[in-house]
């Protein structure tokens, strides 16, 4: 049986009358990339703050590699690398100084620390700019410094709260590549995101949280298969039409407009495709695109989070 590195039991956190995290329990296995998905305000950041010791739970327990977070938060934090969502680097310090400062908090010897900082700066393509103040760098580069600083002490677990938030595509791709690399070198990765695609591309398992409760937890593919019955057909006509008013069929459970396309949710995609072809012929419309879509992780996410609204 795989060894778990994060164990969460009946964790609850309230802010006045609002229950931000409501009796959640789960485990993360050593060496996996675990994604924590949820809409804004679902409780992702509160959960990661509870797991990393920034917040104290009202009830429940968190164990990090066997260390009780409540009893010994400092020891537990020493094996973690943490990148908070709103966490920033020190703008007046250079990339090298930021990484070295982080290493000092973990008690790394000076010589080893500078060597490791240089390795990280090269690995994160920051070496050329190691001596410029961080405030002069782009958001993507700052996020790289943030991640490099969290890795300086070779943590067993890396926590990332919305790591791609506000980054351009190139920076997102590089950070995704780095997270995969960090994981392949042995670290367990726990990341929160509201970006389904990001979770689908990176994670071995995902947990979906909504209104403070975990509503599903499994591998992305298993979750997708479990919701296979909610399939969809994407259709685009040359002419602009309002499907919700012009088509009346029980074959469509729900219709969503997506740019110049319509996404039609159905229990019977084959019959719906035939129906749409007949409809186009009758109305003399030109079909630009027609495709049966597999259930995506996004569909699962929407189904799970909307069900509880």
């Amino acid at each position: 049986m795989p060894e778990s590195i994060i164990d969460v039991k009946n964790l609850t956190k309230k802010f006045n009358d609002v229950t931000a995290v409501d009796d959640i329990s789960f485990s993360v296995t050593m060496g996996e990339i675990f994604g924590f998905l949820g809409p804004n305000g679902a409780g992702k950041t509160t959960t990661i703050r509870l797991l990393t010791g920034t917040l104290t739970p009202d009830e429940g327990a968190v164990s990090i590699n066997g260390i009780d977070m409540l009893k010994n938060p400092v020891k537990a934090k020493s094996i973690m690398g943490i990148i908070p969502e709103m966490g920033n680097i020190y703008q007046d310090l250079t990339p090298m100084q930021n990484i070295v400062l982080a290493g000092k908090f973990y008690g790394m010897p000076r010589k080893e620390l500078r060597q490791k900082a240089s390795i990280l700066l090269r690995q994160f393509e920051l070496f050329e700019r190691k001596s410029v103040p961080a405030r002069t760098l782009s958001k993507g580069l700052k996020q790289r410094i943030n991640i490099a600083s969290a890795l300086v002490h070779n943590p067993a677990i890396l926590f990332l709260d919305e790591p791609m938030s506000g980054l351009d595509i190139q920076s997102q791709r590089l950070i995704r590549k780095l997270i995969t690399y960090i994981n392949s070198s042995g670290a367990t990765v726990f990341l929160t995101t509201h970006n389904i695609n990001e979770a689908n591309l990176l994670c071995d398992r995902v947990g979906i949280i909504n209104k403070g409760k975990i509503v599903a937890i499994d591998r992305p593919e298993v979750l997708r298969k479990a919701y296979e019955q909610t399939r969809s057909v994407e259709v685009s006509f040359q002419e602009l039409i309002e499907i919700t008013t012009e088509i009346n069929t029980e074959l469509i459970n729900r219709a969503e407009k997506m740019g110049d396309k319509w996404k039609l949710y159905t229990g019977n995609p084959d019959s719906l495709v035939k129906f749409l072809c007949r409809f186009a012929e009758e109305k003399n419309l030109t079909i630009n695109a027609l495709e049966i879509c597999r259930t995506s992780l996004e569909d699962v996410f929407v189904a799970l989070t909307e069900k509880r609204d």
Binding site: S78, I82, Y106
Partner: peptide, 14 residues
Amino acid sequence: SFRTYERLLSFPVT
């Protein structure tokens, strides 16, 4: 305000 405080709290210090 510079958003460095939460990062500071993430280090192994009380």
